[in-house]
């Protein structure tokens, strides 16, 4: 392709990215206490509508950003995966709160240790719950990603520790730790 052609396609990508990043149709998958902070971010005081993300769609087929807000239990994990699979491309995922990022302090039998073990995550917003400023910061980082047409495709593998940004690396809890305690006689 000629350089003029390159110029036009890259400009077209820029324009599409710009249009997409200011018309985020989000699907809030709200399960726990982080939902309160999500609501306060969405309401008038912090107002995510300023970033074009003020319009939640409660159907995954019409949404392009999946907000996973709150603890995800193993029982719920297949539902989350189904919702993600139902979304049309291009799609992005935000992990809202430490519960979704790494499981947080729920290191127990019931909780998924980071939703990035089951669906790819684009932006991690830490905090328990994250303050609205933090959420807006995450949203703006997502907008940068959308502008550059980048999407995360990798899942996190807890044993090889690949697929999660440095700084929120979890530990592989299966390594030599499981020991079954026999009942006292």
């Amino acid at each position: 392709m000629s350089s003029a052609g390159n110029f036009f396609t890259s400009k077209l990508d820029d324009a599409i990215g710009w249009a997409r990043k200011f018309s985020i149709f989000q699907y809030p998958f709200v399960t726990a206490c982080c939902g309160m902070e999500y609501m306060s971010t969405a309401a008038a005081h912090y107002d995510v509508d300023r970033f074009g993300a003020g319009f939640p769609r409660f159907s995954p087929r019409q949404a392009d950003v999946l907000f996973v807000v709150g603890t995800i239990s193993h029982k719920l994990a297949p539902v989350l995966k189904t919702v993600y699979d139902q979304m049309c491309e291009p799609k992005w995922v935000i992990a809202f709160g430490v519960c979704t990022c790494t499981g947080g302090f729920y290191d127990n039998y019931a909780t998924v240790q980071g939703i990035d073990t089951i669906i790819p995550v684009d932006i991690y917003i830490p905090g328990c719950p994250p303050r609205p400023e933090n959420v807006i910061d995450g949203l703006m980082k997502l907008q940068e990603k959308i502008q550059k047409n980048e999407q995360s495709r990798a899942l996190y593998d807890p044993c090889s520790k690949i697929g999660r940004p440095d700084g929120i690396q979890g530990k592989c809890s299966t390594e030599g730790k499981i020991k079954h305690i026999e009942p006292a006689k």
């Binding site: 193993h74 998924v112 809890s173 499981i178 079954h180």
Partner: peptide, 17 residues
């Protein structure tokens, strides 16, 4: 139960982490 291993995971989908 106290003899359930505290770090035993039984996920429906995804890795055992």
């Amino acid at each position: 139960r106290k003899d359930y291993p505290f770090n035993k995971r039984q996920p429906l989908i995804g890795p055992i982490n």
